[in-house]
Amino acid sequence: MTKPNTESEVPRQIERVNRLRVSDSVAAQLTQLIIKGAYEVGEKLPSERVLSEQFGVSRSSMREAIRGIESNGLVNSSHGVGVFVVKNTLDTPETPEILIFDDFTVPELFEVRRTLEGEAAALAAGRRAPADTDEMERLLRACVDTDLTDAEFVQLDIELHQAVAAASKNGLLAKLYGTLEPLLGEYSRRVIAIPGRREHAHDGHVAIVEAIVAGRARDARAAAVAHIRDVEEDILRFMKDSGRTT
């Protein structure tokens, strides 16, 4: 008896996962250096090779980053001569501020969050107590209040992730997450005003909590990672709409 070819019968819709690139992070850092005067107007930037070594990225990523800041009008590239700073201000400075803090970049923060929060959600699904799930569901209900300010929503967002970390019953993991809270608060306040971000964040929270309550560790981990991927999608969309990416 011939086994039916189910693969050909089931249509597959695969959506490309868009993520912030290394070059986006490098471009944001280089932009900040130019704005802060590390490279002055009229000054020639170090070579692509030197910059790639300094930033610890590939030359292709460095090249893409330079293209990005050139499109912002900060530098001008002359073939065979080099890249020169032509101005040190941006017409819309909000974009690089979304991607970089003083000591690290948002893509770096996302890398840590995917690991930490994905594992926290998976552990919580297997270890949660009734009090844990009650607290998560209470926070979800609070988040749907349309009268909440963005700042109030961000605070509830942080408290929800705290509750997930606590439900993991891993004290060290919860402590590590606690060290990220000030950074998460600052970052969240930056991106919450992006159109649709608040709604997307809530949808992600619902998926995470539902998987934890149901005890589905794999789904909880996947939902936590998807939640962070969704932030990347919103930031990329915002950057594209702002004319900062191609």
Rank of each mutant, 00 (worst) to 15 (best):
R21L: 15
V75K: 00
V17F: 07
E152Q: 14
Q162C: 13
K240S: 14
G243N: 09
R197M: 14
T105Q: 04
E7S: 09
D145F: 09
R21I: 13
V81Q: 08
L173D: 01
V22A: 01
R197N: 04
G243E: 10
E7G: 05
V213M: 05
L51W: 04
E108F: 08
C143H: 00
V191C: 06
D103G: 04
L140C: 08
S77A: 12
A214G: 00
V81T: 15
T105Y: 05
R218F: 15
G73N: 13
A214M: 04
T105A: 03
V75I: 15
A167M: 04
T149N: 07
D24M: 04
I69P: 00
D203S: 11
A207I: 10
D102L: 14
V191W: 08
L139I: 12
A38C: 11
G118C: 10
L116C: 10
Q54R: 07
G204T: 08
G56V: 07
R141C: 07
P182F: 06
T179H: 10
S8F: 11
D219V: 12
P46V: 06
R16H: 08
A226D: 02
H227N: 12
A193N: 06
G118H: 02
A214W: 12
E40G: 06
A151Q: 11
S71T: 11
E186K: 09
G68R: 14
S168M: 03
R197H: 09
Q155A: 12
E108R: 05
G178H: 08
R190Q: 10
L184T: 06
Q32L: 13
E97H: 14
L140S: 03
A193D: 05
D157F: 12
N18T: 10
S52N: 12
D102N: 09
I98W: 08
L51Q: 02
G73M: 10
E233A: 15
E135Q: 11
R189F: 15
H79S: 15
R59Q: 12
E108W: 08
E94A: 07
V50I: 07
N76V: 15
V83K: 00
K44Q: 15
H202R: 14
S23T: 06
F84Q: 02
A214V: 12
A166M: 08
V57W: 05
S8G: 09
D24Y: 03
A226M: 09
H202V: 10
V75N: 00
E117S: 07
L180G: 03
R237C: 13
T6K: 05
E64L: 13
L74E: 01
I100H: 01
V213T: 06
S23C: 11
